[in-house]
Design a protein around this nucleic acid. Structure first.
Lengths: 159, 159
DNA sequence: AAATTTAATGAAAATGATTATCATTATAAA
DNA sequence: TTTATAATGATAATCATTTTCATTAAATTT
């Protein structure tokens, strides 16, 4: 359903901001826009550089602060792929939510998204979550599943 | 089978070291000893402090270097629980290998190990690994599964 | 057992991602 | 428009981890 949110930068998140009492500012709009336009796993600096192209007055501090806010609001996910910098991506949004996990190449750092087996996985995960919640009295909010290994290029170049 | 590896610090890893051409040094022995004696998820500094009690000449650099070596050898696992410092724990050893995962409290940082559902999980994981390897030509070496949420204390104190 | 080779060590400095400080600016409400 | 204050951005600070390099000590050879 394209155009559902009007032209220009997506505004689907304005309601959430208003509801939380947060102000809608230019830096925040552009940071969301950049996240929305990218399907990659951007680091804070990646995001900073892209926002900077559109709005050169942006400060790196604001990027970090905004990302932190968005993580806390649940609008984006923060990942750690072990390369010393965090990565961010939209959790849901105007597009359909896409539950996926990652294959991470320990040699070149390439990240492959996959959505295979998500259904079966989700089923097991749900069951596990329920049981663990009960047993440990632990209120599960989120989970991560990641596979580490060698991508095709790095795998063949090592033989 | 206690005593299988002789008295004093465990020596089950000496063979692996020799095989790789690595020297068996005092710092390395004590770092392994500390890891072996602890069931917790120690940070580099935790390990440094414990080793320091036994062998005050130890340097933090050596701890980092040794941990890196051990990770590459596959003797220990390195985890990131999102608190800005890496954690390490023995992957296998004289004790039976224990495949487990973690519940991480996003409020107080407490980490709970669990081994429940590991069998079912492992089954799905194996299947997933096989299929993903084929589909993406990705050679999987390792995986992490982590649940984030609120532990019992933090959960109740927030209501 | 002493000499030799060189991997391993440790002190200190460097790095690099992230966070804190604080004066200034701009959003949203009156 | 005025006002209150949340948000911003430049700068400095933090802090885990790495790098550098002169020194030390395993392991091998004599």
């Amino acid at each position: 359903m394209p155009g559902r949110w009007g032209k220009g930068p997506a505004r689907w998140w304005h309601g959430e901001f208003r509801g939380c009492g947060y102000r809608i500012t230019i830096p925040r709009q552009i940071i969301l826009q950049v996240l929305d336009e990218s399907k990659e796993h951007l680091s804070a600096e990646d995001i900073y550089l892209r926002v900077h192209n559109i709005y050169p007055a942006i400060g790196l501090t604001t990027v970090y602060r905004t990302l932190d806010l968005l993580v806390n609001m649940g609008l984006i996910f923060k990942f750690d792929f072990g390369d010393g910098r965090a990565r961010y991506e939209l959790s849901r949004g105007p597009k359909e939510p896409s539950h996926h996990h990652h294959l991470i190449c320990i040699n070149c750092g390439r990240i492959i998204d996959y959505t295979d087996f998500v259904d079966e996985e989700l089923e097991l995960l749900k069951k596990t979550e329920k049981e663990l919640s009960k047993k440990y009295n632990f209120e599960i909010k989120n989970h991560t599943i990641q596979f580490y290994g060698l991508c095709d290029k790095c795998s063949t170049s090592k033989e």
